[in-house]
């Protein structure tokens, strides 16, 4: 058989493709077999949430409302042509995630909620919010069963990062607590990942 340069190139290409396929499948296997734990996933999600939340609170709301004083932030932001409150911004994001059908869910809860719907409800929420209040700088993790599904539930402290947070909460007519200071834990971000 005559081995032409064309055939040689074809053989080389086939060899390269096979090798690449093996490497790629190896990579994919390795990812699948390693996986990530629910805690790592929850921590990672929270890192993104906390960063976005801080940026919106400090660089948008606090700057424009408290420093530059060019716009108001209001719970009724559409009617008042104002900025959505940071807590609403967070909730709207959580609702969009739910609408997209993502398997995890998250919410912002507090032992001192302005909206009573945001008070802790499940045992894990109650325990978690007490824990992060009593143990500054620590997170809380627990498994719980809700509606027949087992969840990995993580609770992260949510501190007051700007004057806008404390002033608004302290002055609100429905707040159960009026003496928040910057740096205080005002509530907690709860992330749930289904385990089954």
């Amino acid at each position: 058989m005559k081995f032409t340069p064309f055939k040689a190139q074809l053989a080389a290409l086939a060899l390269t493709s096979s090798a690449l396929a093996v490497v790629m499948s190896g990579c994919s296997n390795s990812t699948a077999s390693t996986g990530i734990s629910p805690q790592v996933m929850a921590d990672s999600l929270h890192a993104v949430m906390a960063a976005d939340r801080t940026v919106y609170t400090k660089k948008v709301v606090n700057r424009l409302v408290k420093e530059d004083k060019v716009i108001k932030a209001s719970e009724h932001w559409q009617d008042d042509k104002a900025l959505p409150l940071p807590a609403q911004m967070f909730r709207f994001g959580a609702e969009l995630v739910a609408e997209k059908g993502a398997p995890f869910s998250y919410s912002l809860l507090s032992l001192w909620p302005i909206n009573k719907q945001n008070a802790p409800k499940t045992d894990a929420e109650k325990e978690g919010l007490e824990y992060i209040k009593d143990n500054p700088g620590e997170n809380f993790y627990k498994e719980e069963v809700l509606g027949g599904t087992k969840y990995f539930t993580a609770v992260y402290p949510d501190p007051a990062v700007a004057p806008a947070c404390v002033d608004c909460h302290n002055d609100h007519k429905d707040t159960p607590k009026s003496d928040f200071k910057i740096g205080d834990i005002m509530g907690g971000v709860v992330i749930r990942i289904p385990l089954s």
């Binding site: 919410s107 809700l146 509606g147 599904t149 709860v190």
Partner: peptide, 20 residues
């Protein structure tokens, strides 16, 4: 109209008791 009871309220696991 900013639906007061959107679907996301009922898919949230923390409201599973109410959804039941």
């Amino acid at each position: 109209v900013d639906d007061s009871h959107p679907k996301s309220k009922f898919t949230d696991p923390r409201n599973a008791d109410r959804t039941a």
